[in-house]
């Protein structure tokens, strides 16, 4: 139990997908303008990441490894991810048309979110079991949601601040992201991998 908790904590904070591994930066900068949309995006990505972590593990160990078809890995993973994203989009459209509208193009773009494929490949690299894979996916997604929410909150305040003209908009957002990343370096001291 403790081992699983540490795995969750380690992926969410110490090896944060965005700020430490630098994956999934497109939605990080694209959908972090408002707190509500950031939360919606975080939840959608959480759903997709957790589900794909499990699904890609199944594809890897049931289909690819017995048939010795490891060269198809990236192709099949993308296929699985695309299917899960499509499923998520249908679910969101049914549950909340407003959220579906606000997320817009970023929802189908979860397919090409490198955090999703990256987590699946990292799972494989670390030889995780199915449960570990699911937790790894959930942990990464929690870290993703946490960071995108923090960043959205910061950007909402920066939008009201008096920023020099040369830095207004994306430059100050990138500087903030860098500072946030530095802050997350502090978690490297935690005794978890």
């Amino acid at each position: 139990m403790k081992e699983y908790l540490l795995l969750l904590l380690g992926t969410a904070l110490v090896n944060n997908v965005i700020l430490v591994r630098f994956l999934g930066l497109c939605p990080f900068l694209g959908v972090s303008g408002k707190l509500e949309t950031a939360l919606g995006m975080g939840l959608a990505t959480t759903f997709v990441l957790t589900l794909t972590s499990g699904a890609t593990w199944v594809v890897e160990h049931v289909l690819l490894q017995p048939l010795d078809m490891m060269h198809l890995r990236i192709l099949t993973y993308i296929l699985v991810i695309a299917a899960v994203v499509q499923f998520t989009e249908m679910a969101i459209q049914k549950a909340s048309p407003v959220l579906h509208h606000t997320l817009g193009i970023y929802l189908p773009l979860i397919t090409t979110n490198c955090a999703v494929l990256g987590t699946a490949l990292l799972n494989l690299q670390q030889d995780n079991s199915l449960i570990q894979s699911l937790l790894y996916g959930a942990g990464s997604a929690l870290g993703f949601t946490l960071v995108i929410l923090l960043f959205a909150g910061l950007r909402e305040r920066i939008a009201l601040a008096n920023v020099p003209a040369a830095f207004a908009g994306t430059p100050i957002a990138l500087i903030t992201a860098g500072l946030l990343s530095l802050a997350f370096m502090g978690f490297a001291g935690l005794p978890v991998r």
Binding site: V59, L63, L67, M69, L72, T76, L79, V80, A83
Partner: peptide
């Protein structure tokens, strides 16, 4: 076999 695997996966997911 590669073609068959991807086709089967695609059809199944679809």
């Amino acid at each position: 076999l590669s073609v068959a695997v991807v086709a089967a996966l695609g059809l199944g997911l679809g």
